[in-house]
């Protein structure tokens, strides 16, 4: 599904290398987790994959189902099936949540040469998905993320994921700012989307999210590289011993 080879990335405005050669393959149907200390490059990886400005790729490749995504515009990557759930979802005053989601869905469909979804079908789809995430009609009507609590913003991200049905989902620190109940809701939302045709890359600092979203593979990232890869037990090891041990081990 997602194949990253030797990816090297600098910050555009300063001479600073963030990713120093990342290799990672996420297969369809699998959930991969990336853990790592702050500043290890986890979020940068998610931004570079989704096409955020401010980064310069100096080496390596990233493909989605064999297609090079690094040369695509962010909207083309989305239409190709890539989805990034933001660590900090953006508030957009004046743009209604429903208008936003419908525009996004139909833009993607149009880009893929598919028929646009009618207003009625769209409403039905969103209502159904929103119900499982316990999102009220009011939250759907309000401007995008405006006045939402931290947990509501993250639920809104998962709602968009459910509506857009991407092939490859990247979740960037989705657990940050969530209490236990919100984490359960969000995890349920994610787990409901687990599917043989869909890949997940879950970026997190802590192990606790992985109690709810069980990963198949866990990677440890440190200083711009994947330094260790293992099964779910690796996350527990980190939880117990911290990152220092692993860093020492691979150094």
């Amino acid at each position: 599904m997602l194949e990253i080879k030797g990816l090297k990335v600098d910050l555009e405005d300063e001479e600073k290398t963030i990713l120093k050669g990342v290799d990672l393959t996420v297969e369809a149907g699998k959930v991969h987790a990336i853990m790592g200390p702050n500043g290890s490059g986890k979020s940068t990886l998610s931004y570079v994959l989704s096409g955020r400005e401010g980064y310069k790729v100096t080496g390596g490749t990233a493909t989605l189902e064999g297609e090079d995504i690094l040369d695509m515009e962010p909207e083309e990557r989305a239409a190709a099936g890539l989805f990034l759930a933001f660590q900090y979802p953006v508030e957009i005053p004046g743009v209604g949540n429903m208008t936003f989601m419908r525009t996004a869905l139909n833009s993607q469909r149009k880009a893929r040469g598919e028929e646009e979804m009618s207003a009625a079908d769209f409403l039905k789809l969103v209502r159904e998905k929103a119900a499982t995430l316990e999102m009220s009609n009011d939250m759907l009507k309000r401007p995008v993320n405006v006045g939402f609590s931290g947990g509501e913003k993250k639920r809104n991200e998962i709602l968009q994921m459910a509506v857009l049905e991407p092939k490859m989902c990247i979740l960037d620190e989705t657990d940050s700012g969530l209490d236990v109940d919100a984490m359960k809701l969000v995890s349920q939302g994610v787990n409901a989307l687990r599917d043989a045709g869909r890949g997940f890359l879950v970026i997190t600092h802590y192990q606790r999210l992985l109690d709810h979203i069980k990963p198949d593979v866990v990677h440890i990232m440190s200083e711009g590289r994947i330094v260790k890869t293992g099964g779910p037990e690796l996350a527990l090891e980190v939880e117990k011993n911290g990152y220092a041990d692993i860093k020492a081990e691979v150094a």
Binding site: S50, G51, R52, E53, E73, P74, E75, R77, A78, A79, F83, L84, F86, P89, V90, I92, P93, G94, V95, T99, F100, M101, T103, A104, L105, S107, Q108, A111, P143, V144, Q160, L164
Partner: peptide, 25 residues
């Protein structure tokens, strides 16, 4: 707002349409 623009584009909304949405907002 570049942050908002990127957010919309990351969801698949082309730049020109995203710009118009933000302008109307």
């Amino acid at each position: 707002d570049e942050e908002a623009l990127f957010y919309l584009r990351a969801r698949g909304v082309p730049r020109s349409i995203a710009t118009d949405l933000l302008t109307l907002a």
